[in-house]
Simulated scan of single mutants.
Amino acid sequence: MESFPFPDDLLRAREAWHAAYRELAAPRPRHTTALRRRLLALSVRIQWHPFWSTPSGRVPAARAELKRLARHQGQLEARTA
Score class of each variant (00 low, 15 high):
residue 4 F to G: 04
residue 4 F to T: 04
residue 4 F to C: 05
residue 5 P to G: 11
residue 5 P to K: 09
residue 6 F to P: 02
residue 6 F to D: 03
residue 6 F to E: 02
residue 7 P to T: 07
residue 8 D to A: 15
residue 8 D to E: 15
residue 9 D to G: 04
residue 10 L to C: 04
residue 10 L to P: 01
residue 10 L to E: 02
residue 12 R to F: 09
residue 12 R to Q: 12
residue 12 R to Y: 06
residue 14 R to E: 12
residue 14 R to V: 01
residue 14 R to D: 02
residue 14 R to H: 07
residue 15 E to P: 00
residue 16 A to F: 11
residue 18 H to N: 14
residue 18 H to F: 06
residue 18 H to Q: 13
residue 23 E to D: 11
residue 25 A to T: 09
residue 26 A to T: 13
residue 27 P to C: 07
residue 29 P to H: 03
residue 31 H to I: 03
residue 32 T to G: 06
residue 32 T to A: 15
residue 32 T to N: 06
residue 33 T to I: 11
residue 34 A to I: 13
residue 35 L to C: 09
residue 35 L to I: 05
residue 35 L to D: 08
residue 35 L to V: 06
residue 37 R to T: 07
residue 38 R to F: 07
residue 38 R to L: 12
residue 39 L to N: 04
residue 39 L to E: 03
residue 42 L to R: 05
residue 42 L to A: 11
residue 42 L to Y: 07
residue 43 S to C: 10
residue 44 V to A: 12
residue 44 V to I: 09
residue 45 R to S: 12
residue 45 R to K: 15
residue 45 R to Q: 13
residue 47 Q to D: 12
residue 48 W to N: 15
residue 48 W to K: 14
residue 50 P to W: 03
residue 52 W to V: 01
residue 54 T to Q: 05
residue 55 P to G: 00
residue 57 G to H: 00
residue 57 G to W: 00
residue 58 R to S: 10
residue 58 R to D: 04
residue 59 V to Q: 12
residue 59 V to G: 01
residue 60 P to F: 03
residue 61 A to Q: 13
residue 63 R to F: 09
residue 63 R to P: 02
residue 66 L to V: 03
residue 66 L to H: 02
residue 67 K to F: 11
residue 69 L to D: 06
residue 69 L to Q: 15
residue 69 L to M: 14
residue 72 H to M: 10
residue 73 Q to M: 07
residue 74 G to K: 00
residue 75 Q to D: 07
residue 76 L to E: 08
residue 77 E to S: 09
residue 79 R to D: 05
residue 79 R to C: 05
residue 80 T to Q: 05
residue 80 T to A: 07
residue 81 A to K: 09
